[in-house]
Computed example of a mutant assay.
Amino acid sequence: MPATLEVESTLTDRYQTTVPETVRRALRLGKRDKIHYTIRPGGEVVLTRVEAPEVDDPVLGQFLGFLARDITSHPERLQAIDSTFVQRIQSLTGGIEIDIDATLSADDE
């Protein structure tokens, strides 16, 4: 049976507290994340991390809709990408690995 870890924090005069580091790590909490409280009948409170729903970007959706309408209305405007341009892009980005799931650094937020 895994060991139980216990930590404490103190309420301020305004009923606020800092979530202890061990709890933040256990719940994988970051700045601006939300916490869900489940209060059980015996008075026990369970904290869980609220998983943010994936929200579509309304501006991007509108832009993609605009592109789709424009392509449908004016297919004659479409142009093939020059192979030299593709090679140039590949030379600039080749060998660069990106972890899409990696957390952004404080400078990138």
Rank of each mutant, 00 (worst) to 15 (best):
M1Y: 10
A3C: 08
T4D: 02
L5G: 03
E6D: 03
E6W: 01
E8L: 04
E8H: 00
S9R: 00
T10D: 03
T10K: 10
D13Y: 04
Q16S: 01
T18M: 12
E21Q: 09
T22R: 14
T22S: 15
A26H: 10
R28L: 10
L29A: 02
K31I: 12
R32S: 14
D33S: 06
D33T: 05
D33N: 09
Y37W: 09
I39G: 05
E44H: 02
V45P: 02
V46C: 02
L47P: 05
L47I: 08
L47C: 00
L47V: 03
T48K: 05
V50S: 03
P53I: 09
V55W: 00
V59E: 14
V59G: 01
L60C: 01
G61T: 08
F66G: 07
F66A: 08
D70A: 06
D70S: 12
I71P: 10
S73P: 10
S73A: 15
P75C: 06
E76S: 14
R77N: 15
L78K: 13
F85L: 15
F85W: 11
V86G: 03
R88H: 15
R88K: 15
Q90M: 10
S91H: 11
L92S: 11
G94Q: 14
G95W: 11
D99L: 04
D99K: 07
D99Y: 06
I100G: 12
D101G: 06
A102T: 08
L104C: 08
S105I: 03
S105D: 07
S105E: 09
D108T: 07
